[in-house]
C-alpha cells in the first residue's frame, strides 16, 4: 500500500454519519470570509492549493482533533506568516491581548 496523508481518507472504516444540521457561527463565517478575501483578485495572497497543502501538513492528531474551521484558521495563520503578512510574534502578542480583554470583560471564566 502506498503512503498517505491524514486527509486522504477515502475507504477508511468510520462510524455512523452525524447528520444533524449546523448553522455556521459568526466566527466560522468570518473565517470563511477572510479566506475568500485573502484569495480574491484584490489581494491574491495565495491559492486554494496552498490552503490545502497547509492543512494536509498538520500533525495527524491535530488534524483529527480540529474542527473544519479550526483547520482553516490553522492554514490562515500559517500562510499569513509564510507570505510575510504577519509574524508569529505579532500573532502571539495580539492573541494574548484579545484573551486578556475578554477575561477582563467577563470575570466569570
Amino acid at each position: 500500500m502506498t503512503k498517505r496523508g491524514v486527509h486522504d481518507m477515502g475507504g477508511d472504516a468510520a462510524g455512523p454519519i452525524d447528520r444533524h444540521e449546523h448553522e455556521p457561527s459568526l466566527a466560522e463565517r468570518r473565517i470563511d470570509a477572510m479566506m475568500l478575501l485573502m484569495r480574491d483578485q484584490k489581494r491574491h495572497l495565495w491559492l486554494t492549493d496552498e490552503n490545502r497543502r497547509t492543512i494536509e501538513s498538520m500533525a495527524p492528531g491535530d488534524y483529527e482533533a480540529a474542527g473544519y474551521y479550526e483547520r482553516w484558521l490553522h492554514a490562515l495563520r500559517g500562510l499569513l506568516v509564510e507570505k510575510g503578512v504577519l509574524t508569529e510574534a505579532e500573532i502571539s502578542e495580539r492573541l494574548a491581548a484579545v484573551r486578556a480583554r475578554y477575561d477582563a470583560a467577563e470575570p466569570t471564566a
Binding site: A27, R30, A66, L73, L76, I91, R94, V98, R99
Partner: peptide
C-alpha cells in the same frame, strides 16, 4: 482557543 485566534488574526489584518 480558535475563536480567540480568529479575533486576533482579523484585528491584525
Amino acid at each position: 482557543d480558535w475563536e480567540f485566534l480568529e479575533i486576533a488574526l482579523r484585528e491584525l489584518l
